[in-house]
């Protein structure tokens, strides 16, 4: 397709001037205004908007997946009965890789996208603050909706407000547990024990203590029922002999 050449005749030029003046005066009289007066009006947001991240502590298995996938390095796991993620909103880029990574659906996105914090310190949201949406003081009284049809686009203002939604889509995953595939290759380094947040790996027969007291020889590990399948030991094992398996 070739772009048409623009004609240079004075008549065309005059026509274009008239077009400009017409359009400007039309807009001055009946404007197609699209501005939303933000703090006083709130837009209706689609449900899948990626906003503030809400944590359900009862579901969290402290698997650290969210912290490890975060491209901006914004998630810090802090100890609070167990390890739970806290998001540093100074760094967060709202890619929601963490929400997609959560194997149990503990993290959920909400449509809250505008947050104001009093200080930089406050932006490092703690796990217990992530349990529910932050309390907000809002000035908005009406909501605005984009009405798009084939004929055009206009804003519809309504004197009602919608609550911010928390959208939790549970992943279709069965519960998993760690298993040792090749016990014969175990180094006996007990890294898996150290890293396990649930103390699910126990030493059945340990005869070496860390204090340097020689008691005996070797150690045997056992993965108990406490295992929730976070997979931390799988990633920690230097010989890669552990793996996650689905259990009934």
């Amino acid at each position: 397709m070739k772009v048409e050449k623009i004609s240079r005749s004075p008549l065309e030029e005059l026509k274009r001037h008239v077009g400009v003046i017409q359009e400007a005066f039309k807009q001055a009289v009946i404007p197609d205004r699209v501005t939303i007066e933000y703090p006083r009006e709130r837009r209706k947001y689609p449900e899948n908007l990626r906003g503030f991240i809400v944590l359900d502590k009862s579901r969290c298995i402290s698997c650290f997946r969210c912290a490890q996938i975060c491209p901006a390095n914004a998630i810090q796991m802090s100890y609070f009965e167990n390890f739970y993620p806290g998001i540093d909103y100074t760094k967060c880029i709202f890619c929601h890789f963490c929400v997609e990574s959560c194997p149990t659906g503990a993290l959920a996105s909400s449509t809250l996208h505008d947050m104001a914090f009093k200080s930089l310190e406050d932006m490092k949201v703690k796990p217990n603050q992530m349990m529910r949406l932050p309390a907000a003081i809002r000035e908005d009284v009406q909501s605005v909706e984009y009405d798009v049809t084939k004929k055009g686009w206009r804003l519809i203002r309504k004197m009602e407000l919608e609550d911010i939604k928390v959208v939790r889509i549970l992943p279709k995953l069965k519960p998993r547990r760690a298993f040792c595939l090749e016990p014969e290759s175990c180094l006996g380094c007990r890294q898996c024990m150290e890293v396990c947040p649930h103390e699910a790996i126990v030493m059945e027969r340990c005869e070496i203590t860390l204090e340097g007291q020689i008691v005996g020889k070797g150690c045997v590990l056992k993965i108990t029922e406490k295992c929730v399948g976070c997979g931390l030991c799988v990633r920690q094992c230097p010989m890669k002999i552990l793996s996650l398996k689905e259990v009934e």
Partner: peptide, 13 residues
């Protein structure tokens, strides 16, 4: 204000 009106805006408010 007039410019804002032509430009689909609100202007100083």
């Amino acid at each position: 204000k007039l410019t804002a009106r032509v430009q689909w805006r609100v202007g100083p408010l």
